[in-house]
Design a protein around this nucleic acid. Sequence first.
DNA 1: GACTAAACTGACAGATCGGTACAGTTTTGC
DNA 2: GCAAAACTGTACCGATCTGTCAGTTTAGTC
Lengths: 188, 188
Amino acid sequence: MRPNKRDELIRKSLEIFYRDGFHATGMDKLVKETGISKTSMYKHFRTKEDLILAVLRLRDENFRNWFYRRVEELAEAPPARLLAMFDALDEWFRSDGFRGCMFIKASAEYQDRGDPIHVQSAEHKRLLLDYATRLATEAGATEPASLARQLMLLKEGAIVIAAMTGNLDAAEDAKRAAATLLLAQLPA
Amino acid sequence: MRPNKRDELIRKSLEIFYRDGFHATGMDKLVKETGISKTSMYKHFRTKEDLILAVLRLRDENFRNWFYRRVEELAEAPPARLLAMFDALDEWFRSDGFRGCMFIKASAEYQDRGDPIHVQSAEHKRLLLDYATRLATEAGATEPASLARQLMLLKEGAIVIAAMTGNLDAAEDAKRAAATLLLAQLPA
DNA sequence: GACTAAACTGACAGATCGGTACAGTTTTGC
DNA sequence: GCAAAACTGTACCGATCTGTCAGTTTAGTC
């Protein structure tokens, strides 16, 4: 089983699911738009759900890799990196094809907290919270976990507002709020 | 055309759409669960979309009425009311059947910003931002619009995190962050 | 009790849903 | 050059999708 076609299917499906949603994307549409036959799809994935889970795994990997790298390029010291998260967010909002957070959308369509798709989406958020907590610890926050959770609230809020209202300056607002929080919760 | 049945249809449909999602709820399920015939439904609403729009109108009315009332019960002075928003949020998260924000979910399923469902969902967020801006102005904030936007980011973030991860303490985190912002951005 | 209008039932379109079966073609490794 | 693996297109399954239609029951009013 050569991984080429399989990876290509996941990559292309990601774009389509991200653009059109999960329930709104049928397997026949995937056949048409990816050019991959339905037989092949069902040889690689037993169900549509399995395909979606693979898509979410790729998305998680791509997004976190990009985000971590970008944050570390934009700033050196941990406190500055906490702020740089919102600069990276800003770049994402203004990039072509921005359509909000795929995991928020996935968990909105598969609401049951026992649903594998929901579980995996929540896991993505947990990993990003862990990252922020690590940064907050390195930055010397008195309560790093609490600070990280607060910053993540700003991040999620900015994503939702940017996607819903089209206000791409949401990251800027979030950054200003984050700066205020850092000023109050980091030792001078 | 007695409005009873129509209102009953909207009310019951709201619960089902909120619980199961929009695409995942077919008209046949609505027939089964509401006990109202399909013919009657299509006499009141030309399409499923029209029904969804009516549901969202009711949800907007109910939610904003409840939220405003609760905030005003919980605190008297405008600065305290800005904080009380997060106490109301906390009550909502812990209430039975909490399933996140219906408008975030609606805009996640109907992503095109031209889609009437998306437009109406965004309008709900705009109205709540207006309310927060009014409170921030009354509280004497130097930049009421900016402060209100920041507080709304915390609110949306808390809703998303509570719904996705089941962490119901999200409102508490948001309140702590909000308190920090108020301390910095309101005149002593 | 007759008349009217609303709300009902149930069957039925036509399309699409996720998923399968089958027969034939291309690609791959050796 | 040959066999195995991976692919393709097409036709199909039963279920479900939104929406329609003819015919019947229900309810209120004179």
